[in-house]
Design a protein around this nucleic acid. Structure first.
Lengths: 232, 232
DNA sequence: TGTATAGTTCGATACTAGTCGAATAGATTG
DNA sequence: CAATCTATTCGACTAGTATCGAACTATACA
């Protein structure tokens, strides 16, 4: 059974420090080496060694800006592999009473590569279905006529998105909620627009995102979604 | 960044011997410990240790029949994770001239968890599209009216399959060909029927499958697909 | 041009984990 | 019951690798 470098990829992910870095990058942002070192709780030397290995293994790519070196996931396949591993690793969304703030925030709202996941992602997706803006079809969502207009008013041109080579509006099952949220080009565009409108904002490090006060009002006014305590 | 046991899962897969065993089991069959030991080229003791770890880690489950102990993948998520890792590991389907018989056979025809993949899987899927039996729709295939009748004549009740909770006819992108083949309930049913008809047969170990002589004739007569040398 | 900062390379250390030989536990067969 | 086969447990050996201190390179800033 001569296998390709599957083993190499898996063992790269199978290290505490490297996995921490990868999960940080799962948000889609590129981060400098120093920040990844902090996230993994290791010294810069150690981090550098890990980063070099992950680049060699095809998991990461880097670009230099001045004396900083920004690392990001090499491809969307890497993100998908991480999510797939997570799905194996967590078949038990037991909400322990004493869970960390960190994981609560993650479960409430986070990015899944480039679109919104967690309770917020699911609630948003559900509401769009409820309002008849989108409709589930197999593994995808399709946008209704009403939806096309709503997205246009919201600042997203559905026609344009449809022309990209990317999957238009795929259903993505995440590990915390056990329901679907919107991924694909539409999911990414929606997320970008929400950030642009400052309804949600990325937190400095990691994949968690926050709902802003104006976001709270916006979600309630535009879509009729009430979030409790903005996730904390 | 407190992560679940993602690291554990990845590091379990990230070992040469264990990966060999997992890929053997990716065919969907349950195999006894001794066979897995042979496949991984390790002693039974070593294999036993690995198997125990993979069971503890939620990758495998086992059932005992007499003095044999059969192991299989614990869930479809495990298979999906393996495929996702493979997609990261092999972004380069360079067909080297001196590739092994083994990988040639694999690329020609293999099972992807429980449905047919490789050249044969893709050719079959393509032809069904060409003949107007199925039609691509987003991430899925839908069966046409003609298709429904064809499948009935072939021994598959499409209506029945549609009632299962499983995805009906998902498009699955495999690593060797870079095109889609049919997965989901319909893909699995089709594969089972082909084995039942003895058009294809599993090889004793691993994921590769063979086209039988009657299969060669059947594929040509029923669907107009000509396979060259039955993969070897 | 000197100094601080970001990042890497090198070398030494320590720990983890894969491996197999030997022995043991069940199950099957004659 | 003895012989045989499958599979596991235990113990010892070994190799691979994550880690950090120290030194080095390169960029930025004053």
């Amino acid at each position: 059974m001569t296998v390709p470098n599957l083993v190499e990829v898996a063992s790269l992910i199978g290290d505490e420090s490297r996995a921490a870095m990868l999960l940080c990058l799962l948000g889609g942002k590129a981060l400098p080496a120093s920040e990844l070192a902090r996230a993994a709780h290791v010294t810069p030397q150690t981090a550098s060694s890990h980063l070099a290995k992950m680049v060699a293994g095809g998991l990461l790519v880097h670009e230099s800006y001045g004396r900083h070196r920004y690392y990001r996931l090499a491809s969307i396949e890497v993100g998908l592999a991480l999510e797939a591993l997570n799905a194996v690793a967590s078949p038990k969304p037991i909400r322990s009473l004493r869970e960390s703030e960190e994981s609560r925030a993650l479960r409430f709202a986070r990015t899944c590569y480039d679109h919104l996941a967690g309770e917020v992602g699911v609630a948003l997706t559900d509401k769009m279905g409820e309002l008849g803006l989108v409709r589930s079809q197999g593994r995808d969502f399709v946008v209704t006529l009403n939806g096309t207009q709503w997205f246009r008013e919201f600042g997203i041109d559905v026609e344009d998105l449809g022309r990209s080579r990317r999957h238009f509006a795929r259903q993505c099952l995440d590990w915390s909620e056990r329901r679907h949220h919107m991924a694909g080009a539409l999911g990414a565009a929606l997320t970008n627009r929400l950030i642009e409108l400052k309804w949600v904002e990325r937190v400095p490090v990691g994949r968690a995102v926050r709902i802003t006060p104006s976001g709270l009002m916006g979600f309630k006014g535009e879509l009729g979604i009430r979030f409790s305590i903005s996730g904390r």
